[in-house]
Design a protein around this nucleic acid. Structure first.
Lengths: 157, 157
DNA sequence: CGTGAAAGATACTAAAC
DNA sequence: GTTTAGTATCTTTCACG
C-alpha cells in the first residue's frame, strides 16, 4: 500500500497522542471528519497501527532501573535460538530483546525496581536458559524514551 | 499515594490495551463502572499514566533497523552534559537515551530505515555534538519489544 | 463501595453534492 | 474530497442506597 503525506501526518499525530479527537485530527491535517476517519480505518486495517496503549510512569511505579544485558553464546542452531526467544518472551522484566550483529549475540533491556531485584532476575534467567557469557550494564538515568517512530514527513503542502 | 491491587490491575489493563471500554475494564477487575472510572481518573491525575499513544509498525513504515550507539566522553561537567542531552532530544531518530554506569558513558537506540540512513544520521550526530569515541552495534532482529511495565500484581483476590 | 439513570460528547454510518 | 444529518456507543456526572 502507498501512504501519502496526509496518512503520515495522521500516523504522526496518533503515535504522539492517541486521545486526540477525530475532529481535532481532521483539522490538523486539513481534512474534514469523514475522509479523515476513512483514512484512519484504512491505516488500522492495513496494520500500520499495531496497538493502542497507555504509557505508565516507571519511576512512580518503582520500576526505574534499566539494565542492558549483553549475551554471547556458542549455540547457533535455529532450534536453540527459538527456545531461547520463547523463554525470553515469557519474562515480563525483559522489555526489549534484539539479535545483534557484532561482538555479542543478543541484547536485552531489563526493567527492574532496584539492584537486588535485578539479581533475582539474573538468577532466574541463568537457570532458565543455561547462558554463560552474560554482561550487565546499568543505566543510571533515562534521558530520553519515546515510542514515536521518526516518520519522514514532507514539509510541502 | 498508595495503590492497591485493583489499581495495579487497571494500570496493567490500559498499558496492554488502551482501547478497552470502561465497561469491560470494570468487569475484568470486578467493579462496576462508576468506582472503576473514579480510579482511572485518580490514576491519571496522579500522573501514573504518562500518555496515551498508538504504537506503529516500524517494519511496515520502513524503520526496522535499530542501532545501539555507545558513547564515551572525557567531558564530565554538568554544563556539557546538559547541552548534549538537549541535542540528543532533538534527534527524532534517537528513540532511547541512557546515561550508563560502567565502560561507556551513554547508550542510545537509534531507529533508521537502513545502513545508509544510519550513516547520514551518524554524520549529523558527530558534527552536532563533537563526539569522538562512538561505537555502533546493529540489531539484526527485534525479537521482543513492549512498553508494558512488569507490574507486581498480587494473585490473591 | 454499588445501582441506575440521565446528559453530553464522540464515533460511526449514510446520504447528497 | 465536502457537507449535513442521524444513530449508536461510550464517557461522564449525579442522585441515592
Amino acid at each position: 500500500m502507498n501512504l501519502d503525506n496526509t496518512d503520515m501526518q495522521l500516523l504522526a499525530l496518533i503515535q504522539h497522542d492517541d486521545s486526540i479527537s477525530l475532529d481535532l485530527m481532521a483539522q490538523q491535517v486539513g481534512l474534514s471528519k469523514t475522509p479523515c476517519w476513512r483514512r484512519i480505518q484504512k491505516l488500522e486495517k492495513a496494520g500500520y497501527v499495531k496497538r493502542h496503549v497507555a504509557l505508565l510512569d516507571a519511576d512512580k511505579l518503582a520500576l526505574g532501573v534499566s539494565v542492558f544485558v549483553q549475551v554471547k553464546t556458542n549455540q547457533h542452531d535455529a532450534n536453540w535460538a527459538m527456545k531461547f526467544a520463547e523463554a525470553v518472551t515469557e519474562f515480563p522484566e525483559i522489555v526489549e530483546f534484539y539479535r545483534m550483529a557484532g561482538d555479542y549475540d543478543y541484547l536485552m533491556r531489563v526493567l527492574v525496581k532496584d539492584i537486588p531485584a535485578y539479581d533475582r532476575f539474573y538468577k532466574k534467567l541463568i537457570s532458565a536458559t543455561a547462558l554463560t557469557d552474560v554482561t550487565s550494564n546499568f543505566a543510571m538515568e533515562q534521558i530520553k524514551y519515546t515510542t514515536e517512530l521518526p516518520l519522514p514527513l514532507s514539509k510541502n503542502k
